[in-house]
Each structure stands twice: as C-alpha cells, then as structure tokens.
C-alpha cells in the first residue's frame, strides 16, 4: 500500500480561527483505488480535500500528490497539478449562467485549444458516461439534485484526470440517485483506473464501494484498513461510528456547564 501511494499526508496539522482541526494526520491513499474518508460531521473531511487540492495550506506537515509537495508548489505549478485533479463538490457547483453542455466544455475550453467539433464530441461522450447526453441544452437550474451531481461529475472527468475527489456525493440523494452515483463512481474507477477519494458519512454506501477506508475523528485518524478490517476494528469509537450508536466515546451531550447552573435547581444535589 505504501509503495504505490498516490497521495500521502504526514503529520498534517491544520487549525482555523484558533480551533485545531487536524492534529497530526498521517494517511496514504493508494493509486488506482477507491479510498473512503469517513468521520462524524464537523471533523474537517472537506477541509482535508481542500488541503490535498492545495486550496488550504497546513500549519505543518507534508502533503504530497503524485510526487509533488503541494504546500510548497508555486502558483503556476499548483494550477498545472490541479488540471490532473477532479473534484466533485457537495453542491455540484455548476456555473449557473451557462448550459449543461458549456459547463462540461468549460475545462476543455480553458485548458486545451481543441477545435470546436472535437470539444463537442468529448463533451457528449462524458455526458453519455453519466447518462445525461439528452440534457445537454438544459440550464443548471432546471436539473434535479442527482442530475446536477452527475453533470458535475462529467465536468470533473472532462480532462481525464488521474485523481478525483468526491465531497459528500451521497448526501441528500434519493435511493435511486444514490444507486446511480455508486455505480458511476465504481465504473469510473474500474474503467479509467482513476484514483478516487471519497469523503462521506454514509457508512453502508461508502463501505460497499471503497477498497480502503479511513475514519477521522477529533483531528486524528482513528482507524484505517479495508472495509472488513474496519468492521472488526477493536476501537470502540470506530464501532460507534460504523453502527451509529447515539452515545459512546463521542458523547451525546455537547460539552456544557453543570446542569445545576442552567436549570437553576438550587439546593438540589445531582
């Protein structure tokens, strides 16, 4: 696993507005496999993707993608590296003022100087891959949530990237749309050999498609391995997260002052 790591993070520390979000994360993501990063909401999973993509700089630690040390890259090199990355945002992030076709054509027009008929062919191929060739003339506002994400997916694979990062692809999707996305992610990985990073808190879907998984909580990696290894993981925290128990090592109550102070039951002893 270490030998063919496409992305590797070492002791990454990141804090924002005084709050420490990552407290020394070490993680290797293998090439050509689907890796799921899971964890409770608010543990900075999306932040992790942004650190990998170079949008945020860690306070310390190393982040390397395809052999490049991301935080040390110059602007130009970073932008060149990003041409090899695709990212599917939670909201899809389609450009609302241009049509589906133009959205998918956008990265091609910016980064290549292909003739118009070739761009058309590539765009239609990518749309066909996500099953939305017929929707090319629609505007993003006319699409459903699932379709938006599929178009965004077509856009992020337009340049045939080596790496694709999915930010919460399953949230807020109906079961059918979710099934479609699961199938697409798996197909893209197997047919194009894409290295895929999947950030999610939908445990069953993520575990069903990923080759490796990693659970983050409290700024630390608490468990890694194949889905089967994780299911039998000794850590209580991992088990709480995987089976979704309301109370456990992650407490039900947000840290609060003594209930006596708030509810004002003077003289009562708890």
């Amino acid at each position: 696993m270490e030998s063919s790591a496409y992305i590797s993070l070492k002791d990454v520390v990141f804090s924002r507005s005084g709050r420490r979000i990552f407290d020394g994360i070490t993680l290797d993501i293998p090439k050509g496999k689907i890796t799921a990063i899971m964890g409770p909401s608010g543990t900075g999973k999306t932040t992790l993707l942004r650190v990998i993509g170079g949008q945020l700089k860690p306070d310390s630690g190393q982040v390397s993608v395809a052999g490049h040390e991301v935080p040390k890259l110059k602007r130009k090199e970073l932008y060149r590296l990003r041409e090899k990355m695709g990212m599917l945002f939670q909201s899809g992030a389609l450009f609302t003022d241009i049509s589906v076709f133009e959205n998918v054509a956008f990265p091609l027009r910016v980064h290549t100087s292909l003739p118009e008929d070739m761009i058309r062919d590539i765009v239609l191929m990518k749309l066909e891959a996500v099953g939305l060739r017929g929707a090319r003339d629609l505007m993003p506002s006319e699409l459903s949530g699932g379709m938006t994400r599929r178009v965004a997916l077509a856009r992020s694979i337009a340049l045939d990237p080596e790496l694709i990062m999915y930010d919460e692809p399953f949230t807020g999707q109906d079961p059918i749309a979710m099934g479609v996305l699961v199938k697409l992610i798996r197909d893209l990985n197997s047919s194009m050999g894409l290295t895929s990073v999947l950030v999610s808190h939908d445990v069953p879907e993520s575990l069903s498609i990923c080759h490796y998984a990693c659970i983050i909580a409290d700024g630390k990696v608490i468990g890694t391995g194949t889905p089967d290894e994780l299911r039998n993981h000794p850590s209580e925290l991992v088990q709480q997260f995987l089976s979704g128990q309301p109370d456990g090592p992650v407490p039900f109550h947000y840290p609060a002052s003594n209930p006596v102070d708030d509810f004002g039951i003077k003289g009562a002893s708890i």
Partner: peptide, 12 residues
C-alpha cells in the same frame, strides 16, 4: 455555491 472553489480546483 462553491463555483469559485470548483473553478480553482479545475486549475482556473
């Protein structure tokens, strides 16, 4: 709507 972020991630 993360359009700016996604543009950045597309290398634009």
């Amino acid at each position: 709507t993360e359009q700016l972020s996604s543009m950045e991630m597309m290398g634009v």
